[in-house]
Nucleic acid binder design. Sequence first.
DNA 1: ATTTATTTTTAGACATATCTAAATTTATTT
DNA 2: AAATAAATTTAGATATGTCTAAAAATAAAT
Lengths: 218, 218
Amino acid sequence: MNTFAEENYLKAILSLSLQGRELVSTNEIAAEMSTSAASVSDMLKKLQEKDLIIYTKYKGVSLNMKGTKIAVNILRKHRLWETFLVRKLEFNWDEVHEVAEQLEHIKSEELVDKLDSFLNFPKFDPHGEVIPTKDGKIPKTDRVPLSEIKENTNGTVLGVTLDESSFLQYLNKLEIQIGTEIEIFDRIDFDKSVNISINNKKQNISNEAAKHLLINKK
Amino acid sequence: MNTFAEENYLKAILSLSLQGRELVSTNEIAAEMSTSAASVSDMLKKLQEKDLIIYTKYKGVSLNMKGTKIAVNILRKHRLWETFLVRKLEFNWDEVHEVAEQLEHIKSEELVDKLDSFLNFPKFDPHGEVIPTKDGKIPKTDRVPLSEIKENTNGTVLGVTLDESSFLQYLNKLEIQIGTEIEIFDRIDFDKSVNISINNKKQNISNEAAKHLLINKK
DNA sequence: ATTTATTTTTAGACATATCTAAATTTATTT
DNA sequence: AAATAAATTTAGATATGTCTAAAAATAAAT
Ligand SMILES: [Mn+2]
Ligand SMILES: [Mn+2]
Ligand SMILES: [Mn+2]
Ligand SMILES: [Mn+2]
């Protein structure tokens, strides 16, 4: 059985791995988890002892099969709980992440199975993030960040890749939800911000925000 | 914010207090929590530091207002979660205690409120145990343990005071559930066991089991 | 009222997880 | 290639929670 701390480190490594990087660095993990590089070094040693990661000192770390399985399962639980909170308890999408950070560590396979069934085996969480399957797969989806969408096209917002409430509340103000249609006009060279229109209102979205909005691939 | 360990100690003290005892002893807590008396001593010192208990060395401990409020709230959460697990996720009553032991420590007042509302403000959990109110009251109920019921009477099982699965599975075998009608014939002097009849089947119930079965007061 | 037994506390150790500061390794400049 | 900068690890502390064994206090028995 793994501790909350161990699970959180595994989850952070998974999250960074999914964002591209082959090997994840100590500093990246420290930033992701808002902790010190020293603490990360300590924990990496421990996770290697437990045979959950592949770690070369000074070089970087990746999850092995065992570690991946655990991390993906926590991600699955996180997203199932978020779905439960929004669909059944009537939370808003910007209120669920912190509670799910706690609930994801509850240990009971049967609980997860029954929750999944109660929710009718959802494929996506309230942020449009795909829910990993029971057997540890993360289904592929055809989505592109708004920051990489061609100018003069339109598309639908299918997901966000950040659960932070400040970001989601900003989206609420922009009237962006999952399913919202947007037109992309042009991208400003200077700061890579994009001019778009939502419900016929023209808006400018920063590159930072556009990176976290997933649009359907045309 | 309190740790899981602190919350579990407060809960244990509450539980023992509700079972009668004015002052709770170190050994009683140790037994209740399956830990050493030394650990209990350590923790009592800490809880006193935090001003959650009234503790006199060598004499015993009781909860103060602050400690009571926290402990009752955890009991409330435990029982609400058990209710959720049985009513919504289709767990059996003998499968929920361990999971609720984890869920009761999730910190979010809003979550508890919404769960309560989702469940339609239940008054009792799946074991017939009364659910404390949001404002920290434990509603009184008129129930008597089967071990104290007069001979040659009948009554209805309204609750159990033990969530252990071995006990509940024994009750399943006896066909005892919440609401089951039973006739009490007589009590054996030798071991205080009771002869009863359930669904017209005669059974003998040990004093130990009878203590944990709550019958409506006639 | 002593002695004996029981309960409770303290002492000292260990495991986990975290931190800051110092040392070491690797990467980047000059 | 040497010097400097950045990233990473180690050393040493601290906090929490647990344990066993020993000491101290209280209760029970003689
Ligand atoms: Mn989230
Ligand atoms: Mn999400
Ligand atoms: Mn229970
Ligand atoms: Mn219960």
